[in-house]
Design a protein around this nucleic acid. Structure first.
Lengths: 348, 348
DNA sequence: CTGTTAGCGCCTTCAA
DNA sequence: TTGAAGGCGCTAACAG
């Protein structure tokens, strides 16, 4: 009878275990473990033998068992805003790129009810670390709730007040300069500059844009015009942006310059304007925010405030890796800056 | 001294365990387990007491330990094409939506070297199931490689030859009808219809489009014109599509109708045409494929062959759930159909 | 209704 | 260089 057959069948239904390999190789499971992982000292002869047998049996270690004993799972969680927004999908793709050089698996947290997920999933030794992007409100509760949580790197645009109290690694995106530049350009080009934003409360904490806009408008002796569109928390609903904007323009005077909360909305607005036969930039100058590549493929190419997404993701992973290998590292922080990229939708 | 303190510190560094709760409640760990999970019979009194203590201690079960004994991890893997392509990002977002009603966590597989990941990650009891979309070549190797793999649902556009041999649950997307309709429309509207495709070999198996196109062109007595752009496997590189197309048109006659491999490419082509001052649909009629919402926000709105993404994702999750709960379910299969959506970029 | 027993598959620690 | 012991935290199965 095959030695394999002799071993008792586990709940795992016949999966090859360390024990099976050990039996066939005539050694102790521990030796197999060492041989396969390269830890400990194993003679070349037995190592080769073990490796051969392991390959023949197609042995794969049981990660749950390993995690149980080591306390590490080999996976990190990524929490972002709704992936339906291209911006977050892009971040995901960038992070995927970062992680692929490592052996870490990527657990993708649903963006809705992040609070529930962060608190209930992450604490259960399900991941070794977390990268949270633009999920600050949830994160705050989360870090407060308990100390027994895996290390977390937070990145994104957030409220200065919150940052101060942050005891965790973080990367702050500073939008203000770029917004200042964008609004400045619009103010100097246009007579009626509006800021288009979602009515959703969730985005309040990102509203550096609104603040800078209002401040600059007032400084320029203009009346701020914040257009709140009823599109809810998911700005990827361009259909809503489009419809709401068309509706708005039926009953309001046309601004000749618009800064939008983000690119998704800018694209919706672009379409609304074209629906009404308006020309860009001749009738309306348009600027978005986030730097989605999509913006460049419109005609005219739509201006945007470009986020340093690549740098942010690279840095976030760097921070997390460091914290995972050196838990005692002092708090890591960095600030990255967005930049305004004027394109055809803005007159120069 | 606090009873908690008395318990031995584990490698998990002081995390609250079942044992801790049991000690405080003065019951056996098993009772705690039953009380908390609602399995077995526990008196209301002890249940409430246990729940209260568990809450106070902020007890969270260790998932690795549970997975080790139950053989289930509570997570499913999702494997798709490159998330940098909006199409896959959208699928991810749809799947996220499906999974969120369940307690399953979503492991996101890097799209590159899927082969490596599928084979090395998935076999290690890391996930309970897999949803693989448009990853057929890898999947085939994977199912062949070993039988000891978690259940997998495959969905996407794939080669009929492969389907036949598929012993796994799958959802086939049938593009041909829609492509037929699209090509038909272009042929009747235009005198020079071209098919624009990436030169990448990886996409060969999806080339129902090319086949239908060529067949119909010949049937109509036209000469097929397949324009292969050197953009590699990631069609989201619109910059490459744009540059290549501009280049192409410098040395070739202008087709007055173009069907593109997918929407990403269509958007790149759109920009290339506009770069050259060409009008759509007057000079060139343009059709993409995938049904990205983005297409509708261009001016003119770009026609596309719309994939049944929502249905596909919903069904995939349905299939997988069923297989997870009833492993003996016979092979589940379905066919969904794409549909051609003519828009402003095509004359009616 | 509650407790006992017996591991899941692996790794840490130490002994040989 | 290899082996033995013991346990990570939890739960299935059965005993009381």
């Amino acid at each position: 009878m095959n030695p394999l057959e002799k071993s008792r069948r586990s709940r795992n239904d016949g999966a090859v275990t360390l024990q099976h390999v050990a039996d066939l190789a005539g050694v102790h499971p521990m030796t197999v473990s060492n041989a396969l992982k390269g830890t400990g000292r194993v003679s070349d002869l037995t190592r080769e033998k073990i490796q051969r047998i392991a390959r023949e049996l197609d042995y794969k270690p049981n990660l749950a068992a390993r995690a149980l004993v080591t306390g590490r799972t080999g996976s990190v969680a990524v929490a972002t805003g709704p992936v339906s927004e291209h911006f977050y999908a892009h971040l995901l793709s960038l992070l995927e790129n970062e992680l692929k050089t490592s052996d870490y698996k990527m657990l993708f947290l649903r963006s809705r009810d992040l609070g529930r997920d962060l608190l209930s999933t992450l604490r259960n030794n399900a991941v070794d670390g977390i990268i949270a992007i633009d999920a600050f409100p949830d994160l705050r509760d989360y870090t407060r709730a308990s100390s027994r949580v895996p290390p977390c790197v937070y990145a994104g645009v957030f409220d200065p007040d919150d940052v101060i109290a942050l005891p965790v690694d973080h990367i702050k995106i500073d939008l203000s300069r770029a917004v200042r530049e964008a609004v400045g350009t619009l103010i100097s080009n246009c007579s009626q500059v509006a800021y288009v934003v979602s009515n959703d409360i969730m985005s309040e904490y990102r509203e550096v844009r609104a603040n800078v806009y209002i401040e600059m408008m007032e400084a320029a002796g203009r009346t701020p015009n914040v257009i709140k569109l009823g599109i809810g928390g998911d700005t990827s609903r361009r259909d809503l942006t489009r419809a709401n904007m068309v509706e708005y323009l039926k009953t309001h005077p046309l601004p000749d310059g618009m800064l939008c909360q983000n690119d998704e909305m800018a694209m919706g607005v672009y379409r609304a304007l074209r629906d009404l036969g308006l020309r860009i930039p001749d009738d309306v100058q348009l600027v978005g925010c986030d730097g989605l590549k999509d913006m460049k493929y419109f005609d005219p190419a739509l201006a945007s405030i470009v986020q340093p997404s690549e740098e942010m993701c690279a840095l976030a992973w760097q921070f997390l890796q460091r914290r995972l290998t050196h838990p005692e590292t002092p708090v890591q922080e960095a600030t990255l800056y967005s930049r305004f990229e004027a394109r055809e939708s803005v007159k120069i």
